[in-house]
Design a protein around this nucleic acid. Structure first.
Lengths: 217, 217
DNA sequence: TTTTGTTTTTAGTCTTGTCTAAAAATATAT
DNA sequence: ATATATTTTTAGACAAGACTAAAAACAAAA
């Protein structure tokens, strides 16, 4: 049985290292989890003892099959709860993160799977992130980042990578939402900002914003 | 902000001492929470420091207004989640307790109140226990225990006090459920067992079982 | 009113998860 | 290749919450 804290570390490693496949540095985990490197070292040893992580001193951490499955389950729960909150309980997409962060640790397989069915087996959460199935698998993401697109091309906004409330509130304020058709008008070389068009309005978004928007072409 | 452990103590005091009104002994709490008296003493001091409990050495604990409100909120959440699990996620009444025990600690007022609305403001949980409202109040229980009833009288089963899965499975096996009309046929003085009639069938229930069944007359 | 028994509290220890500060290993730059 | 900087690990400490064993308070009985 994994503790709440262990689950948070598993999730961090999962997110930082392409589902835990590739080794992640102690410092990277510490930053993600807002803790100190020494704490990470301790916990990572514990995860290795429990056969949830591969760990070699000074060489970073990756997940074992069991670790990856455990992490995927936490992510699955997080995203299903987000769907529940938005679709059934009138939460907006900028309100769900903190609550889902708590709900993801509730232990009951029946609960997750019944929730999944109750929601109609959704494939994506309210931010466009894919929801892993029972086995931890999900369809590969085919959306492409705004910064990788051609000038003049367009696509549908399907994923926002940052799901902090500050960022989502920025999108709300600028009337940007999943499903919007966005056309790339111009890249500004000076600061990498991008001029885009949606709903017959042009707006300029900074590189920081662009980095978090993914479109389906 | 209350910790998970503090909430469990508040709930125990609330349940043992008529919503925390009357003083409860250290040992009683220890038994309820399955811990040791010394642990209870420690925690109870902490609750008093936080102005959640009244505590005088050797004289038991009761709840302050804040403590009672905090406890009622935990109970409210527990019972609302039970309703959710049964009505929306196909849990049976003997499966909900452990999961609700986890869900009751999720912190989000919006979540509780939206869940309440989503469920149609239910007044009772699947075991017949009343659900406190936002202010911690609920309608007084008017059902009466089987052992207090007159021979020959009848009533509708509206509350089962023990919600452990062993007990609920016993009821399932004997085809007893909330809403059933039950007639008291005979009290056996030797062992205080009771012969009752439901759905044209007679069964004998032990004193231990009878103690947990409450009827509306 | 002593004595005996029970309950409660105190004192000290343990585990989990965190931290700081110092040491060790690795990486980078001269 | 050696010095410097960065990252990671170790060592030791701390807080929360639980425990055991012993002491203190209270309750009941002779």
């Amino acid at each position: 049985m994994t503790t709440l804290s262990e689950e948070n570390y598993l999730k961090a490693i999962y997110h930082l290292g392409r589902q835990g496949e590739e080794a992640v540095s102690t410092n990277a985990i510490a930053e993600k989890i807002e803790s100190k490197a020494s704490s990470v070292t301790d916990m990572v040893k514990k995860l290795a003892d429990k056969s949830l992580a591969h760990y070699v001193k000074y060489q970073g951490v990756s997940l074992t099959n069991n670790g990856r499955l455990a992490a995927a389950l936490v992510v699955r729960k997080h995203r299903l709860w987000e769907v529940f909150l938005v679709e059934k309980l009138n939460f907006s997409w900028d309100e769900v993160h903190d609550v889902a962060e708590q709900l993801e640790h509730i232990k009951s397989l029946k609960l997750v799977n019944e929730l999944d069915a109750f929601l109609g087996f959704p494939t994506h959460d309210p931010h466009g992130d894919p929801i892993p199935d029972k086995d931890g698998n999900y369809a590969p993401i085919k959306s492409v980042n705004v910064l990788e697109m051609e000038t003049g091309s367009e696509g549908v906004l399907t994923l926002v990578k940052d799901s902090s409330d500050v960022f989502l509130k920025y999108l709300n304020k600028n009337n940007l939402a999943l499903g919007d058709v966005i056309k790339i008008l111009e890249f500004e070389p000076f600061d990498d900002s991008v001029t885009i068009q949606t709903k017959n309005k042009q707006i300029i978004i900074s590189k920081e914003v662009a980095k978090n928007l993914y479109l389906n072409q």
